[in-house]
């Protein structure tokens, strides 16, 4: 299988702090990959670097949209990365609170539409057609994610679990081929986590998505992932199947500490 996301030697310096140090990660098509590591290991920084929110100090990021040649995306603006088909959710929920649930999803569709100021003011047939399609497409996405009952609710009034799912719905609306989920299960109860597990697998199987996720819920990570990458202090320390990672001494050391340290 060819990789759809290929990151090589990614380094990010904040002043003297090396938040990411020479990280190599490649994710294959149709995989559910997980990025784990202790708090402050640089997982979210990694997401921010590859989606263009930060401009990495060094390294090389490449994505391969389906049926196309690999493209380098390092240094692109976030909106261009999204246009190319890599979409993400946020760890600390970043919904548009002044908008309804449906409108939040409609925003995701923004980069797939063309109508500008003039067509918004004059409303020619093409614009009305497009607008109708956005509404129905967005509603369809909400149905898939299971949020259709909230459609006209303000996003901020949603229960916590539903807000997390809405983030996924919004990311889906941008028509991605690879989806980055930043702690999608944070703060969810066991039932919600279980539903999320099903949703992620459903997304991979039915929407042809490749998924890379950051997660602290080890049960979820172990049951879900095909491949796990572990980072600690900005360095990648291990990679492998859930079985391999679970038994890797470096990983255990990173999470539980070195015995010799305490002695």
């Amino acid at each position: 299988m060819e990789p759809v996301l290929n990151v090589k030697n990614l380094t990010m310096n904040f002043g003297g702090l090396k938040a990411l140090d020479d990280v190599n990660i490649s994710v294959e098509k149709g995989q559910i990959a997980a990025l784990i590591g202790p708090n402050g290991a640089g997982k979210t920084t990694f997401f921010n670097c590859i989606t263009g929110i930060y401009d990495p100090t060094k390294g090389y990021v490449e994505i391969t949209p389906p049926g196309k040649r690999p493209e380098r995306i390092k240094g692109l603006k976030p909106n261009h990365v999204t246009e190319k088909g890599m979409s993400r959710t946020f760890q600390n929920i970043r919904l548009f609170h002044g908008m309804t649930v449906l409108e939040n999803v409609m925003i995701g569709r923004h980069c797939r539409l063309n109508s500008g100021i003039l067509s918004a003011m004059l409303r020619p047939g093409s614009q009305r057609e497009e607008e109708k399609k956005v509404v129905s497409d967005s509603y369809e996405i909400l149905e898939k994610i299971g949020l259709e009952k909230y459609v006209n609710e303000m996003a901020v009034n949603l229960p916590y679990g539903a807000q997390r799912r809405l983030e996924i719905a919004r990311a889906l609306a941008t028509n991605p081929f690879i989806l980055l989920l930043d702690e999608p299960a944070a703060g969810m109860n066991p039932q919600e986590t279980k539903d999320l597990d099903d949703l992620i697998i459903w997304l991979r199987d039915n929407e042809d998505l490749t998924i890379l996720l950051i997660e602290h819920d080890m049960k979820l990570v172990m049951s879900l992932s095909d491949r796990i990458h572990v980072v600690d202090y900005g360095k990648k320390i291990a990679e492998g199947t859930p079985e391999e990672v679970k038994n890797n001494p470096d990983v255990i050391k990173a999470y539980l500490g070195d015995e010799s340290d305490d002695a």
Binding site: T51, N79, R88, F96, H110, S115
Partner: peptide, 30 residues
């Protein structure tokens, strides 16, 4: 015109920008 703009693609992008600049960019808005 303002009413039409408010509920258009551009108008929604404005509100998204107001609510969260980073998320707005991550959703593909220039």
């Amino acid at each position: 015109f303002v009413n039409r703009l408010e509920n258009s693609r551009i108008g929604r992008a404005w509100i998204a920008l107001r609510d969260d600049e980073i998320a707005c960019q991550a959703m593909g808005i220039d």
